[in-house]
Simulated scan of single mutants.
Amino acid sequence: MPLVFHCNRNLTIVKMWASTLPIILASLTLTIQGASVGQECGKFNEKQFKNNKTIAEPNEHPWVGRILGTNREGKDHLTCAGILIDARHVLTAAHCVSNGDVNDISAVVFGDSDSASRNLVSTITIHPDYSAAKRQNDLAIIELTKDIEFTDLAQPICLPSTEKPKSETPDSDLIVAGPEGVSYRRGDPDYKRTDGRIKVAFKRIDSSECNKLQERFPVELICSQDDRGALLALSGSALAEASGNPRKFYLVGIVTAGFGSPEKQYTGYLNVRSYLDWILRQTSSLS
């Protein structure tokens, strides 16, 4: 059972003082959250959330973007998902952009049409401790060349609080959203990849159990399971939590890896909350 990335192509794998860190992070968090309020982060629609459909509606999850590369014929092709966290920054898995070359990305697109909200890339920042071999710290930040104009099809998701939740979020309050990724159904001659963005119910399994099944699976990842052949989200897709009053979507995980067994398939999500300090420092300094 090899550990795989849910990605459409292989890319080349490319101090703060303890006493002041909480104050700095609190300030950064307030700044980001303040900006997010004006940007109406985490747009949530109860009817869409509970409609049990697997294909997202055009205005559903407007923070899900598609990272496009260019093939040998010079045409766009989908490589990974990217998640909009403010007007200028997109989070994705580091293995999607691991050589750090902005020329590998033709655009980050929001909306279901390739011509809708095409955004060019200015810089790519890969987590300094990213290890492709160990599948650790698989996180990168894409900075766009200019601020996105927010529409019904392009809006940021909220970042979670830096505080660790007192209890585990129920699976029913979580959703996986993004383009369809690598599926074990591709051996079926009648299989056709879904063109639209998908949404998949989250079914939690303890990460230690996933590690027992696949020793290369990092225990620090969030893990979910589903029946073999079920829809899988592409690398960089979001694990989003619906919470608060009024309810909003918060980005709690990013799809980074997966593996299969004869009966089940398993997906690993980088825990965004564990990287908030780095995300906030990077997006503040890049802005």
Rank of each mutant, 00 (worst) to 15 (best):
F217I: 04
A240C: 03
R197A: 13
P246S: 03
L144R: 13
R135H: 14
L153H: 15
Y250M: 00
K134C: 00
E180N: 06
P156V: 08
T123R: 15
E149V: 11
D114Y: 13
D188N: 15
L213H: 10
I205S: 01
Q225P: 00
F217D: 07
P246H: 02
N245L: 00
Y250A: 01
P160D: 08
A132N: 14
E149Y: 05
S161R: 07
E180L: 07
G236I: 07
Q136W: 02
L120D: 12
I124L: 08
C223V: 07
S115W: 09
L234K: 13
D227S: 14
T162K: 14
D114G: 11
P179M: 13
G187D: 06
E143K: 15
E241A: 05
L139P: 05
A230W: 00
G229L: 01
D188C: 05
A177T: 14
T162Y: 10
H127R: 08
P179R: 15
Q225R: 12
R228D: 00
S115D: 12
S115L: 10
R193D: 01
V121W: 10
T151A: 06
K164A: 12
D195L: 14
E149Q: 13
K192W: 02
D227K: 14
S235W: 05
A242D: 01
L221C: 06
L174Q: 11
T125V: 11
I148A: 13
S167H: 07
D227N: 12
A240W: 03
Y191P: 03
K212P: 01
